[in-house]
Design a protein around this nucleic acid. Sequence first.
DNA 1: TCGATACTTAATTAATTGTTTAAATATTTA
DNA 2: TAAATATTTAAACAATTAATTAAGTATCGA
Lengths: 104, 104
Amino acid sequence: MGSAWKAVADDNRRQVLLILRDGEKTPSEIARHFSFTLPALSTHLRVLKDAGLVGERKEGQRKFYSVNREGMSDIADFLDEFWDENLRKLKQHAEAKERKKNRK
Amino acid sequence: MGSAWKAVADDNRRQVLLILRDGEKTPSEIARHFSFTLPALSTHLRVLKDAGLVGERKEGQRKFYSVNREGMSDIADFLDEFWDENLRKLKQHAEAKERKKNRK
DNA sequence: TCGATACTTAATTAATTGTTTAAATATTTA
DNA sequence: TAAATATTTAAACAATTAATTAAGTATCGA
């Protein structure tokens, strides 16, 4: 599993995610939005999938890719650390509680 | 100006931001948390600054770095694109359910 | 002024990344 | 079965990146 951070660091990959936002699409459909080749897109999709940011579904010879929003949770969590001190404390408290529970 | 996305793609640089979260610190203070050298940290700080993610303040021979939360707005905005969409889909789902109920 | 301290810049190197073209795999259709 | 379509994998290459050691700049204190 690759990191979501590295996956979204690339401009083209973020663009892919935005394109998929409205619904699943095949590689060739996605590739129309870009100037690079299909194999290049294929590797981008692989990176996004390894990062858990997209899912795939095969239907015959075509493959449909879709956004996996849960894959963005690491990024969202990081931002939350800076969003609000109170939120951060609440979260720490919840996590401490969780650890306590798991220790039982 | 470098991109905030590339700046935060690096594990060490994200760690630097977390270290600075509680208040400004000098390079040597920050460097204590890492195993790499001070020059390496210096270049990380430069990348973070070029991305607008940290600010610096010079005081004598020391330099104080601090988090610049506004620098994270690009990243937050991107995530919002998917958050809103999620809300929309939830709403659509609820509406579909409602229609189903009314059909009975 | 001299030496220590704090930090940055430069030169070098190894590793990673994004791209291309060509070949491979899988599925559909004639 | 053969040709066409959709996608991925492989090989090669240029560009970028993160690290190290060594040298440079600026400030402080004896």
